[in-house]
Design a protein around this nucleic acid. Structure first.
Length: 365
DNA sequence: GAGACGTGGGT
DNA sequence: TACCCAAGTCT
């Protein structure tokens, strides 16, 4: 059955009003729903990418307290923007947002562009975020297709395209365009997502509470649990890592700034390396410090903690050692820096290295 | 187009 | 334990 035929099976006008009326009555009271300021909407949408609402709320509130206006954020330095994002993950989001905001301030007089064409040129603004900002902040009838929308529409319209494939997004965007409630695109897009979050959940959807169940082809056929079709990704690889918390005679701690591209870009970390198979860890670490960093350190024989950390595509097991070193003339050398404990806690570290730091302090007391 | 890119929570 | 998920984007 083709798409046009399938959509003839639902009454679009009734679907729109049932959905939007439900949203008006049942929507959650979320901080970013108090204000349609395009900058604030934009910040919330970037934070919500691949991230749960409950996780985002405190970050969103802190972010706008620190950077209340688009100009305030444009003026921030990178250390500050990473620190406020610390623990949220996908750190390129905040670096792209910062770059994009600076462009809006310099090229658009601080006004977030209101066309798909222009807003999509900004870093970190893909098809979803463009549609979300344009519809929520500017009331434009542009689709905002995220995972919720694909799940909801796959069920309502019995769409069986594999949502794990990037090519499927356009199928759902076309569907949203045909279903769009032009009287209130903001509510329509948000209602689709809210329905996915509250009712039309990935497992055990609450069909009996669903405001649009009479329009749902999956419910009609009892196949809501079989949709959406989504192929699974292959499993993650693993890395064993040696890390060291090194203190000099002044009590300052050696940290390293990660490269500006790739995993955890520009975040700080304790010096570390991948374990070399078959070699003694302690000797490997000692050798690494002397040959790579030209540091003469004495390392404890046994690690003080083992940290396991799981990423989406990778897992780390980090054995962390403690050590001391003599020379402390310079505070900076390349990507290395000696900092006090207070300074360290003002810098942005990935969660894996925060775990090392917490274990270190715990072991000290 | 497949893989990189984080983290915390749920089953 | 071992997945899978959560308001995606970039390369």
């Amino acid at each position: 059955m083709n798409k046009a035929k399938k959509e003839n099976l639902i009454n679009i006008t009734e679907f729109q009003s049932d959905l939007v009326q439900w949203f008006q009555e049942e929507q959650r009271d979320l901080p970013w729903r108090k204000d349609k300021n395009p900058y604030k909407v934009w910040v919330s949408e970037v934070m919500l990418q691949q991230t749960r609402v409950d996780t985002v709320i405190p970050y969103y509130n802190r972010f706008l307290e620190k950077f209340p206006t688009i100009e305030a954020f444009a003026d921030a330095d990178e250390e500050a923007i990473l620190k406020i994002w610390e623990g949220l993950g996908y750190y390129s989001r905040v670096r792209n947002l910062h770059s994009a905001v600076k462009e809006v301030v310099s090229e658009y007089n601080g006004i977030v562009p209101d066309t798909k064409e222009e807003i999509s040129k900004l870093k970190g603004v893909g098809p979803y975020t463009a549609g979300a900002v344009l519809s929520i902040a500017y009331g434009k009838p542009i689709p905002a297709v995220d995972g919720n929308v694909m799940r909801v529409l796959s069920r309502i319209l019995l769409i069986t395209d594999d949502i794990a494939k990037s090519s499927s997004r356009k199928v759902f965007e076309s569907a949203v365009e045909r279903l769009m409630y032009h009287d209130n695109p903001s509510y329509f897009n948000q209602a689709l997502m809210e329905l996915g979050a509250l009712i039309c959940t990935p497992t055990s959807p609450s069909c009996l509470l669903c405001p649009v169940r009479e329009h749902c082809q999956a419910f009609e056929n009892g196949v809501q649990e079989e949709l959406p079709v989504k192929t699974r990704k292959k499993k993650t690889r693993h890395e064993d890592i040696l890390a060291v918390v090194l203190k000099n005679e002044e009590g300052k701690i050696l940290i390293n700034k990660r490269p500006e591209e790739g995993l955890l870009a520009n975040l700080w970390e304790f010096p570390n390396l991948k374990i070399v198979p078959l070699l003694d860890p302690w000797e490997t670490l000692q050798d690494f410090l002397s040959t790579e960093y030209l540091l003469d350190a004495s390392i404890e024989q046994h690690s003080f903690t083992e940290v396991r950390h799981v990423f989406t595509h990778l897992t780390w097991t980090i054995d962390a050692y403690e050590g001391r070193l003599k020379s402390g003339e310079v505070d900076e050398y390349g990507s290395l820096r000696f900092v006090t404990e207070e300074e360290l806690e003002e810098l942005a570290f990935p969660v894996s290295h925060q775990k090392i730091w917490r274990a270190y302090k715990e072991q000290k007391r």
